[in-house]
Write a protein that binds this DNA or RNA. Structure first.
Lengths: 225, 225
DNA sequence: CGTGCAGTTGAGCAAATTCAACGCTTGTGG
DNA sequence: CCACAAGCGTTGAATTTGCTCAACTGCACG
């Protein structure tokens, strides 16, 4: 069903940011009991308003959650990368939809299984809570992003990605300009222009459209405000 | 320390929105064991980066949480009104500061007390989780707000307030234009102009600057997108 | 070789911000 | 009681930022 090696890779890819200790127990559970599923580019993992019966952990690839407003505008709530857990939205209905950005492998575990565990094991309950709390903080940070200028948003986005994707100063973005725009609340044109502007001011390099080199993190950080 | 009547009023003021059942147990706890505190206009309840040792429940008045960016911009994360619980940010440090918008009375309970309860009572643990999940959804909705146009944000704000503050179509806003602007990611001028525009198009009435009459909820809802 | 998709670039435009002035209310001190 | 300052809100004019619309490039794929 799932090779232990793959999973080990998946988890070991995610360092820092979420200091792991509190998660070990939970992570183990999902890895021992979870089923592995693969999703192709743009495949739907779940739709909003579907019952939230499962929890997910990204093994490889990238998943985006999003919501489409009545008039067609799309807001991306988050990108989930190897090691990240998604799908907990507390209520029994999802509020966002989830899709694979790239070919992705995901571990899936029934929520009821976790719930049953939590019933007996207070640590599992606590971890569910902690995970939700992390998600809360992430969304709060996202709000702070959305009130900034285009430059600041893009700079913050690049720094976030550089932090989450391993490998030094060369970042290979898994998502399109449209995805970035919908995450940052901008248009693709503005994102594109900002990228070129950052390149012109020597803050970044753009060897390819998805490949970004962080030349001057300080400059980016300054932009970040 | 606190009159039972006051508390009863406080809670009974909050209807709908958060359908209460799951909260009863927890709510009782905070009301039985919590200490009552009063805060004057603009008084600080807690500062960001302070240890998050307490949970709070608004009895009367309004509390805002906010964060000030390096360059002085302020983002208001939420307004908490009678019946609302705030202060749970999962981690042991607050990420936002909290201040009383108006003269406010708040019940305070030590987090460790709750934690101890949760240790023995799975229902308390579950409620902590549910509360955090609600907060998460609220913040997600806030994100959807921030990508809309000024008109849509203001319309959504008014509808939200009308829903939360009891009393039919006449809403008495507890907060200043600056607070509204910082909540919606706009300037006070834009908020003010949008208010007058909504008045001119007969969607609302403005008998006083803080007193709003919802004349046409449908129009506001349509703006909301 | 043509078609389609992703990304870039330019020109004009619209929305919201900035800067500035002004009115109204409230509170304070002469 | 009046004068005046301070805070809050509104309004106007100029400016800026990011968006819309449109054209064009490079690249992958049939």
């Amino acid at each position: 069903m799932l090779t232990q090696t793959t999973i080990q890779n998946g988890t070991s890819l995610r360092p820092a940011r979420f200091s792991a200790p509190a998660l070990l127990l939970f992570g183990e559970t999902i890895e021992l009991m979870g089923a592995s599923m693969s999703f192709g580019r743009n495949a739907e993992v779940y739709g909003e308003d579907e019952p939230a019966d499962y929890l997910y952990k990204v093994v490889s690839g990238t998943v985006r959650t999003y919501k489409v407003l009545a008039d067609g505008r799309r807001q991306i709530g988050a990108f989930y990368m190897p090691g990240d857990i998604f799908g907990l939205e507390s209520s029994d209905q999802h509020t966002f939809s989830a899709e694979a950005v790239t070919e992705s492998k995901v571990l899936v575990i029934k929520r009821s299984t976790i719930a049953a565990l939590a019933e007996r094991d207070i640590d599992v309950a606590r971890q569910l809570w902690i995970l939700t709390g992390r998600e809360l903080r992430r969304v709060q940070d996202h709000i702070l992003l959305l009130i900034k200028t285009a430059q600041e948003r893009v700079a913050a986005f690049l720094l976030e990605m550089a932090e989450r994707l391993p490998a030094g100063d060369r970042v290979e973005l898994p998502m399109s300009r449209q995805d970035i725009a919908d995450y940052l609340g901008l248009t693709i044109e503005t994102v594109s222009r900002t990228f070129t502007h950052l390149e012109n001011t020597a803050a970044i390099g753009l060897p390819s459209s998805r490949g970004i080199v962080l030349r001057n993190r300080n400059a980016l950080g300054r932009l970040n405000g």
